[in-house]
Design a protein around this nucleic acid. Sequence first.
DNA 1: AATACGGGGTT
DNA 2: AACCCAGTATT
Length: 393
Amino acid sequence: MEDILQKQFFSAELLQWYGRSKRDLPWRRNKNPYYIWVSEIMLQQTRVDTVIPYFHRFIEKFPTVAALSHAPEEEVLKAWEGLGYYSRARNLQSAVREVHEQYNGIVPSAKADISALKGVGPYTAGAILSIAYNQPEPAVDGNVMRVLSRYFLLEEDIAKASTRISIERLAQELIPAGEAGDFNQALMELGATVCTPRAPQCLTCPVLEHCAGRLAGRAEELPLKTKAKPPRPERRAVALVEGSGAHAGRLLIRQRPQDGLLARMWELPHAELPLAAAAGEGAAAPARGTRRRSGRASAPEESHDAVMTFLQERLAAADGIGIVPMEWIMNAEHAFSHIHWDMLVYRCRYAAVSNLMLPPNYRWLDLAEMEQYAFPNVFLRIISDYKLMYTTD
DNA sequence: AATACGGGGTT
DNA sequence: AACCCAGTATT
């Protein structure tokens, strides 16, 4: 089939299919550029079903550019809690403030302007320009690269930046006149619902008959992509420090540094442990998953003693915090894309602080006041399991 | 070009 | 357990 005809068929059929198959998503109810922007940032590396409840809460809390501009950063971070990639939230607020101040609150429609905003890369710029302003800009994400790799049987490695550029060029050619927003969304929608990474539903695909990957019997092996490196393992000892006296019923928490992993999020105090020896049972070899104390036989008390001493010393040395670990209560693990945490959690007693004052990044947390602090999911799980243990035991 | 940066769903 | 996702910023 002629190259040109294959492209025209694709664009026309895909657009028609979208017209009858598109999902009713909260950010599709109007073309408010601020809504589109918020949704696109949330959707970076995140599935639609995960985003929907966050989007509703976020827009309710910060309905306009002005509202988000004036919000305290902690509230924005709290609204993002559990969504991951927290720099997205900080960059979004920073960029929204820029729009508030430099563009009179109007999301810019010039490519150079919008691309200059923090957190707005080539995909997001194209998505906002096409969806909110119907400009003929490509919006190439993982879905689009997969769909086009299959339909046109492209064998470039989609992990390479050069491939994204060439697919952007192709995607732009395919945009039907005046239909940029719907076409770009159609492309992503097809990738998310039909042309899925594995087990694609080719038989229901609107462009099946001219899909080169399918015709070659190679749809499932596309796109080509070099594998990511496996995450590096880390072991951490976590202190669940119970307050007493004036702080009875509270837990000791601390805020992470301004930059880097989980920047400015709150967490339980913890310390990195040396990696266990590969062979044999190292000290307190981590078990899999989060488990309650009663759910399994404890690891030998011996090894936990060593870890507890280590934890006590590390927190004293690093933060000047005096705690006394009393018993192992659970293991937890958490997988980031680049790090894997195996965590040993210990119930601790608060002893003292060297100078009687808590360091500035520490707080006593009332379990009823969790809404004031944004925690990464791994610590929410640990705290939740802890509460369960002490209300049912 | 490679790495940092979360978290969860699917197979 | 592997794979991958409506990516961007930094180095």
